[in-house]
Design a protein around this nucleic acid. Structure first.
Lengths: 209, 209, 209, 209
DNA sequence: GATGAATGAGGGTTCATTCAT
DNA sequence: TATGAATGAACCCTCATTCAT
């Protein structure tokens, strides 16, 4: 790769990060290209040289997030036993939420608007969920876990883990975590893991109760 | 009340509803007073006759929501046993989320922005949570429920119930619920209730397992 | 006069005073009817009940001022000797400027705009000046005063005396007069009187030098 | 200087001139950015590309005027004898007033409003006046001129010369000077010079009387 | 008389985007 | 590539005025 190309992709990455940050806070309509440019450390005119339009940038970022999430968060892709699968999933989700809260907030914002730009992304996302549904039903049928509503079980895991990104301000206040310091990921992951394992009729080791 | 006063308060209510709706979708910066006025069925100039500024309207709505929530969602105010308290709480939260999703979305948006306008409201909210903390600890100490992290237990209940408002678009898609019709509140409340009762070591009837 | 009529004229006077005050500070375009109403202690709607339009109110006030000035400041109307006439004129002008600076400022503002509303008032004002011209020329012809440019002599007297109203802020600063207290009218009138008497070749007693 | 920079400074100059013109006529509140833009021959959006805000533009112009005046009008900087100093000062002031009346009107308007934006400029202005005070006192002490109130003498010179800018409309009418043509600067300067020299006990040649 | 309500026009300012350099 | 300049549309809000009560 030439230095020019490296520079180009560095700028594009800076733009994407800045866009996530700004869109996460103020939404599509509430974010100015000026703000994105500033956050990316470039001029507004330069930004518009790299992007087609604000809407387009938003779409690109949304696609980027959704596709990355597919790789990151897959319940079924693991061949582990249910307890391990759930424990690992929650761990990964909580860590991602605490380390990249703006990504979660960006997505939550899109959902809150009624997901007008999601149409292209529903299909793969749906497939992932259906995949996991099958895995969970398999666990139930094999008597490995207590019966659960597979879809709602997934949605609720998602809800709990996302929450710590989206409501970071409130959670920090209630947990007494100062703004600069990281939140207690272990404590959060532990309680969440127990919550969903118990739902499956298991203790923290994965033993049936 | 005179007809003039009735009319006035009807307009004010329409404005508040419209503001919640629009702010929930596009945030403070992304919402135009034009959009609020249209949604409230009045002219922009008329809207500005009733409000001081967009920021002020936003603050008013936020205060209105927070104070109403304090009345609606109190775990500790009930003298019921844990199972009943939790079941009722979740029922109330889920129903509110499904019936007034915009209210939840408005709040979530404020959180996602880092809660810049919440300062005045943290104290009472904190007090409510601390109240519930004491109640839960009481249950644990009395051996009525299994030990839980009282704060995170609350946060997680909040996370799960709020989610069905904030991610309505996604949930509808996954549950196959068409846009016009109401979602299946019973199914959602049932799975959520079971989730949190199991965490407490109880079955749906409230019996210890 | 009935109480209703008394009340009415009291309000009209309050409006005129408020209008002078506000127009003097911010001009015709820069003054809102809201500001005038507030300054007069009435509501904006009530103000518009008493006036035809903002422009009309401005015109009325201008006419009021010009006609009052004709009565107040007439050099020729007195049968006094030159020194007395000049001394009295300056005394009257300075006192008016210091006691009613807003009236002077209102007029100065109209002049600064190119006097677009003055057309109706030039004629009488011109007549007054021409009158005084004749008086001054009479004094010169009778050898009572040294020759002066009668018109510019008048204009300069006007300039000096008006100045202490229009530039009150600057004059106070330079003279070290605090905002609340009255300015030193004697000192100002004395220096101004000497200035114009010397121009006429007279000392303060009116004796030729 | 590149053509771009020349173009830029030409626009900035056009804006400043337009601002002086418009503010002089209608004050800060009464002047629209639309009007300034039109007067400068650019679009409103373009104007706002060059300025920070209307208030800022006003402040800039005020600072520009005050600093230029300090250079232009200094009584004390000359080593001339009193008669020459006064004659030259009045000549310069009258010429400036007749050639750039809007500058004087801008300043007068600021004074009439109570000089709310002047705070930063009082100190240098005060110093200039104090300087001149000392010069005048020196003349008196040396017996070169008759005793005068040094401060009021200065203020009155200022008043008379400014007047021909601020009251141009009235002066033109009284002097019978048509709108397009220049006013008779010689006549005005002559009468004003005589006025203040006589006050000092001197004839037009500077000889004591 | 007095007042709350209403409005079309216009206020200052920012916006996303384009273009010339 | 990068940037200063430019713009038409839209932003929030205030205005003078009218009207119903």
């Amino acid at each position: 790769m030439t230095t020019a190309k490296i520079r180009r992709s560095a700028i594009q990455e800076a733009i994407r990060d800045a866009a996530i940050r700004e869109f996460a806070r103020n939404g599509l309509a509430g974010t100015s290209t000026q703000a994105i440019a500033k956050s990316a450390g470039i001029s507004k005119a330069q930004l518009h040289y790299y992007i087609t339009s604000k809407e387009d940038l938003y779409q690109d970022v949304l696609g980027y997030i959704v596709s990355h999430w597919r790789e990151l968060f897959s319940l079924s892709s693991s061949l582990e036993d249910p307890a391990e699968a759930i424990t690992n999933y929650i761990r990964r989700k909580v860590e991602h939420a605490l380390e990249h809260p703006d990504v979660s907030r960006f997505f939550a914002n899109e959902m809150a608007r009624g997901a007008p730009e999601m149409s292209a992304h529903w299909a793969p996302l749906s497939a992932s969920v259906e995949d996991a549904n099958r895995t969970i039903r398999g666990w139930i049928d094999a008597g490995k876990i207590a019966p659960v509503d597979p879809l709602l079980f997934q949605i609720n895991m998602w809800a709990v883990t996302q929450h710590y990104a989206e409501y970071e301000a409130q959670v920090r206040m209630l947990m007494g975590a100062p703004d600069g310091q990281p939140m207690d990921a272990d404590r959060i992951a532990a309680e969440a893991t127990t919550l969903f394992l118990r739902r499956c009729g298991m203790d923290e080791k994965g033993n049936r109760i």
